[in-house]
């Protein structure tokens, strides 16, 4: 994973609540054994019409959304399945951060492990961003802040370990593997107790 420290982009807004993982990437695209190249399926059934043409009415197809790396989504984004294909698809599609007032547990966990910033904001901050699509935000991971064009600033929670991994690009498996002595100790204790 590449380190994620700063992010500056204008926002695209998908105000729908409860955008589930089947919306983010429909299950029929999960027969892949790769993690690359899933961006073309991101939001597939919204993005394309039944005949395969682009759905011009879909927010992320609009010219204003081009190149935007920050998605502001309605409450409870990412609910549903545990498929990591969802953050893989969003990253490959070009998104680097998802902001909402509530993000489903497994999705958030999966996203952060892949360097997709999944940030939970307060209701009022969220409402402000929903009402101002397209504004430019500057996210500072170390400071845990989001800077608005008018100089205003939102701060957000991020657990220390996830933050460390984002900032250094370190992956968590390395950390787990370094716990081998403790894991062996745990297994030994259990065996003795049995």
């Amino acid at each position: 994973m590449k380190p994620v420290t700063h992010l500056r982009s204008h926002t695209a807004v998908l105000a729908h609540e409860n955008i589930d993982t089947d919306r983010i990437i429909p299950a029929r695209f999960l027969t892949t054994t790769e993690r690359a190249g899933l961006g073309r399926y991101a939001f597939n059934d919204w993005r394309y019409n039944a005949d395969g043409s682009a759905n011009a009415a879909f927010e992320l197809n609009k010219p204003a959304a081009r190149g935007c790396e920050i998605l502001v989504a309605g409450r409870n984004f990412g609910c549903g399945s545990s498929r990591e294909h969802a953050p893989w698809a969003l990253l490959d599609f070009g998104l680097r951060a998802v902001l909402s007032s509530e993000i489903a547990d497994i999705f958030r966990n999966n996203a952060l492990k892949n360097g997709l910033l999944a940030v939970v904001l307060s209701e009022s901050e969220h409402r402000y961003l929903l009402a101002h699509p397209g504004i430019e935000l500057a996210i500072d991971v170390a400071a845990q802040t989001i800077e608005l064009p008018d100089g205003g600033r939102f701060s957000f929670q991020l657990d220390a370990f996830a933050k460390h991994c984002l900032l250094t690009g370190v992956d968590q498996l390395g950390f787990l593997l370094s716990q081998a002595p403790q894991i062996e100790h745990f297994e030994r204790l259990r065996q003795e107790a049995a």
């Binding site: 966990n109 892949n114 498996l173 593997l177 716990q179 081998a180």
Partner: peptide, 22 residues
């Protein structure tokens, strides 16, 4: 509980997971 594919890799390799207490 359900986990993502990165975590499937964690469990295969270490039989452990990193978890915040719910």
């Amino acid at each position: 509980f359900g986990i993502g594919t990165t975590e499937v890799g964690h469990v295969l390799a270490t039989q452990c997971l990193l978890q915040q207490k719910p």
